[in-house]
Design a protein around this nucleic acid. Structure first.
Lengths: 374, 374
DNA sequence: ATGAAAGCGCTAACAA
DNA sequence: TTGTTAGCGCTTTCAT
């Protein structure tokens, strides 16, 4: 019996409606209710009339299947774990990771799954877990799939993959671990940015980027070189300055040092918004005006629009990345379910999405005159 | 029987170890295994020897209890829903919400719960859900508790609360809905900031803030007035400029208009980092230097350290806010569980945490000379 | 086209 | 101190 107690000022957690109650109310069996709600496919057929009645009753009583029971029975938790990028290095977090997180949650919800947040920084053992680390925690939740956003350590990914759960890595995958990936075509993005600068007349361009040797960083730098080469521009070694990722102080120091060197660039390409921030700080100190005295382009487009002047930047299609991640995972999850034990699984998907250049006020033709003077 | 298939190159999702297997292997019953793993409290006592053996076997086989079965039986999902602040207004998201999100996930993990991400922006109906909206989705997950980060609409909160699930609202609660809250002592934070400015010698201070009438905004503005009054300063009406929240263009326009008015301030208090960003843009256009010609303080401390110059800012203890939110929720969840049906529940907790002022390079004494000249 | 019945893995009351 | 038993709510054959 269903008692709606609306009168008492406070609500005690009321017992939820079960399928049995819906069945009874609709004058059918629980099996029928289940079949209707799952739009069952098998050798089962529900008459439109029955279907309609069940649905009406379910809706009237706000019936929602118990996810635990469903999970137990179907061996599917409906959960996608999102392992966010580590953020301890920075006080202000990773806007990119945040966007991916949110977009993943939305994309998952659209297919009836939910995203559970795994923050690798959690310190200390988790009570009740046999293995104290955060991956024990992850595994203990039995997610149907796992998204790694730019994982730091390949071992973490490998461990999850070995447990047999579908995995997808985003943006900065460890290709040594054979999982699906969704990345972005940095090469094309960088080319666009450099073409934009060269098109404006710049030839002396400084590259500010990460010293981390991850492929994603390498490919930005390689693309930088390739793009210049295509324009017949050869840069001195001093045109590339590599420093630590994601620390403001590091980026400022890097820019400061690089800008002190000769010859002076007329433009800067920052291989990440944080490097653009660092460049801006250093340029301010030097009283060099952007874009009057020097142009600035960045890769990421997260802080870029906020800075002054608003920075021309290469944007990653984060919403699409998240959506495709969920797609890939869902496909894999459904596939895994149907499989017996044969090892005839297809090779992991590797999706590459295009970037987009947002042109703002930080770029203009180099001025004809000589060296810098604010 | 437990078959570890390590040889096959690819792993098929292997059947998980169950408590029955552990029981058999340890030569005890499943009930004993359960009692050991849950450190059962009732009238059950496990001999240290048995305990040790069970634990050893469990660990050897990497046994992790099936969360769905546990949830089904105990009527506890182990999930905390985190409803993030809506973000559609801005391309760059809400760093504050992100931090709260991550810290909540960490705090939850420490007590064995997981956080599921609810992004209110999800559009379109969710397949299989009776009610198509995102709160139907939320409820369908049967979370043990819900965290609302600065909820937009009180109705959403009320709906969840009415379902009997413990709720806590963060930072910008709707006090009309009787839930627990964890907020920040904006009053004290603003006082500190204003004291800092006045201590430097400023008396003409411009307030740039949200036109939204939420209490959190009101209290910042009220505190601004109170702080000035305490210093015997009376400001003209034109010293307060209110505009739209969280849009860059709006903030810039607001600052632009306000700065055009007479008399000119020697300092600006931005009631949110986005307003500081707007102020900086407007000041740049006017070629007014910070802090030489005008000082700038903000509230939030999210973008503040990145801007140039780094902005003195009031920081909120987001990690603590998240931790307390989890604490409050957990207490409430345990309480609810023990309760029969009596309505003798305690009034909801209202925690208020202190802010911290980070002094950076955007503030200095006003210069003795007259009006602005970059 | 629908119903009956079994069982997913776990926990809690009751026995022993 | 430990084992037995009975479900939690759902899905899924198999019968009808």
């Amino acid at each position: 019996m269903i008692v709606k107690q609306v009168d008492g000022r406070t609500m005690t957690k009321r017992r939820a409606v079960t399928s049995a109650e819906i069945a009874q109310e609709a004058g059918v069996s629980r099996a029928t209710v289940s079949a209707v709600l799952n739009e069952a496919t098998g050798n089962i057929r529900i008459s439109p009339e029955t279907r309609r009645r069940v649905l009406a009753v379910a809706s009237k009583f706000h019936y929602v299947p118990n996810p635990a029971a469903r999970a137990l029975r179907s061996n599917r938790s409906g959960a996608i774990a999102f392992v966010s990028r580590t953020m301890h290095q920075t006080a202000f977090g990773h806007p990119v990771s945040y966007q991916l997180n949110l977009h993943s949650a939305q994309a998952a919800a659209r297919v009836g799954a939910h995203v559970i947040e795994i923050s690798p920084e959690t310190t200390g053992a988790v009570p009740g877990e046999v293995s104290g680390d955060i991956f024990g925690f992850l595994l203990s939740r039995r997610p149907d799939g796992v998204i790694f956003d730019a994982p730091t350590r390949p071992d973490d990914v490998a461990k999850v993959l070995e447990s047999g759960i579908p995995v997808v890595q985003l943006l900065r995958p460890h290709l040594g671990v054979p999982t699906a990936t969704v990345t972005v075509d940095a090469t094309r993005g960088v080319h666009e940015a450099i073409d934009h600068l060269v098109g404006l007349g710049h030839r002396a361009i400084l590259y500010l980027g990460s010293a981390d040797t991850h492929r994603a960083n390498r490919s930005r730098l390689d693309a930088f070189h390739a793009a210049l080469q295509r324009h017949g521009i050869v840069l001195p070694e001093s045109a590339v300055a590599l420093g630590p990722d994601y620390t403001l102080e590091g980026s400022i120091a890097l820019a400061r040092a690089a800008l002190r060197r000769e010859p002076s660039p007329t433009a800067i390409f920052a291989g990440g918004d944080i490097f653009a921030v660092g460049a801006l700080h250093a340029l301010h100190e030097l009283r060099v005006r952007v874009p009057d005295a020097i142009s600035l382009v960045s890769y990421d487009d997260v802080y870029a629009p906020l800075l002054y002047p608003p920075i021309t930047s290469v944007a990653q299609p984060l919403r699409d990345v998240a959506q495709r991640a969920i797609d890939v995972l869902m496909r894999q999850i459904e596939h895994t379910a149907g499989e017996t034990d044969g090892d005839a699984d297809a090779p992991p998907a590797h999706l590459v999405l295009p970037t987009q250049l947002h042109i703002r006020s930080s770029t203009q033709p180099p001025r004809p005159s000589g060296p810098w003077t604010g």
